[in-house]
């Protein structure tokens, strides 16, 4: 699956729920896979009594990974050329996150056309948790 130049235009959108009711176990899974074992993400005893948070929270990079899934589902596999985000709010167990992509530019110069995307992931309250941009190659 990949996007074609004649099928995409500025203003096109893609919306995807990237996680529903985030489980603490998924945060543990991410710690194991990524190697980031910071106990603020998995250790309730530590995070409440020492670090001073209400409970554990997701790695920013888990939220970015979840967001990336929406992008690759839209642009296709192996098509991404840039992906960047700013983390604006913490993601907690129980959160449901939705990623919204908007096409901001379709570049046709050269022999390899590409698109630019505005990337926003929000929680169920509508608060933005990550915001960023991505670019990807598309088919001529």
């Amino acid at each position: 699956m990949s996007l074609k130049l004649n099928e995409v235009k500025v203003g096109d959108t893609h919306e995807e729920v990237v996680v529903e009711d985030l489980k603490r176990t998924q945060i543990v899974q991410y710690a194991g896979a990524s190697g980031d074992y910071n106990p603020v993400h998995t250790d309730n005893e530590y995070v409440t009594k020492v670090a001073g948070y209400p409970t554990v929270f997701a790695h920013g990079m888990l939220t970015m990974g979840l967001t990336g899934k929406a992008i690759t589902n839209y642009v296709g596999d192996g098509r991404l050329t840039n992906f960047g985000v700013r983390f604006s709010k913490q993601v907690w167990p129980g959160d449901t996150l939705t990623t919204n992509l908007t096409v901001t530019e379709v570049a046709t110069e050269g022999d390899s056309p590409s698109i630019s995307l505005d990337v926003v992931t929000t929680n169920a309250e509508g608060d933005v948790v990550v915001k960023g941009t991505a670019t990807a190659r598309i088919d001529a």
Binding site: N38, T42, Y46, V50, A51, Y53, G60, F83, V85, R86
Partner: peptide, 28 residues
């Protein structure tokens, strides 16, 4: 610095600093 018998295995300040390090942006 995570919990075992105690809530943290290191003095408060050390774990505290690690816990207060957050990721602000990431770009690839």
């Amino acid at each position: 610095f995570g919990s075992g018998r105690e809530p943290s295995g290191t003095p408060d300040t050390q774990g505290g600093t690690a816990a207060r390090g957050l990721h602000a942006e990431q770009h690839y």
